[in-house]
């Protein structure tokens, strides 16, 4: 009883973690299913059909590729624009700081349905043709804020003395940026880009409003949900999940090693083992 009380938090915590993965398990298991009817909802029979024939259903793979394309383009643009804003916010003085902060914060606090609808209202009023272009515009718009937040945190966490040391050691402003600032902020930028891609790749609501006839992977799933989602979709989702998890775990590993070295420039180093 006492043991239970002491470990209650842990037990509940682990239970919540398991709960988070239940749907993932369902998605994975059903990717090996051979559904009896058109809906892949209940287990019927083991089959590798979806895995051996990933693009076997028309539209699945093309929508998948479309989503990757949109994700890559939006991520690159948003990462560049967002990182620039982050630098400006941390390193420069300018007027209208609170308006700027508000403009960055609000997209994260606005329901997607409102963002999707308002952007569609703009495009409709401008008679702007909907398609890949409008979806990319929309994705860049909502990713920027997340990039700003991530890169800004990294920049603020950096010891300002490192850049001063570089200046002191004959590095002109350009060299300071190239050899010290940029390498130190890079992990933050990469993290922001990964987050941005994930957001873009998985976005349904905003895309759906602004896609016109374009079909992204989530839009394909949405459409298929009415008439039965092909097993291939589960297989592709499983692949995406595993790949993303591997990327993040690798990044985590690299980051941890780097962070350990970052800490020492701030923390008195005596606590470290002598070598």
């Amino acid at each position: 009883m006492r043991w239970l009380r002491r470990n209650l938090v842990g037990i509940v915590g682990i239970a919540v973690l398991v709960y988070l993965f239940v749907p993932i398990a369902v998605i994975m298991v059903l990717s090996f299913n051979k559904p009896s009817g058109k809906y892949n909802l209940t287990w019927n029979e083991f089959s590798l059909d979806a895995w051996t024939n990933l693009c076997g259903v028309p539209g699945v793979c093309s929508s998948f590729v479309t989503s990757i394309q949109i994700g890559v383009i939006s991520t690159i643009v948003a990462t560049v624009l967002g990182s620039m804003i982050a630098f400006a916010l941390v390193r420069y003085r300018f007027r209208g700081r609170s308006t700027t902060n508000l403009l960055i914060f609000l997209p994260m606090a606005t329901p997607e349905v409102v963002m999707g609808a308002s952007l569609l209202a703009l495009f409709l009023n401008l008679r702007f043709p909907l398609g890949e272009g409008t979806v990319i515009i929309a994705h860049i718009m909502f990713i920027i804020s997340f990039v700003v937040v991530t890169v800004k945190a990294r920049l603020q966490g950096m010891d300002p003395r490192l850049e001063e040391a570089a200046r002191d050691l004959y590095a002109n402003p350009r060299a300071v940026f190239r050899y010290v600032t940029f390498p130190l902020v890079l992990p933050g930028i990469v993290g922001a880009a990964l987050l941005g891609f994930a957001l873009s790749f998985d976005d349904f609501i905003i895309s759906f409003f602004n896609a016109g006839t374009l079909v992204t992977f989530p839009i394909y799933i949405w459409g298929a949900a009415q008439r039965g989602i092909p097993v291939q979709v589960n297989a592709l989702a499983t692949i995406v999940f595993v790949v993303a998890l591997l990327i993040v775990l690798t990044a985590q590993f690299v980051n941890q090693r780097r962070r350990r070295s970052l800490a020492t420039s701030v923390v008195p180093a005596d606590a470290l083992p002598r070598s």
Partner: peptide, 12 residues
């Protein structure tokens, strides 16, 4: 990590 699997599929 669960967010890496499609939002729609997880809901489904």
């Amino acid at each position: 990590a669960p967010s890496f699997a499609s939002f729609l599929l997880r809901t489904y």
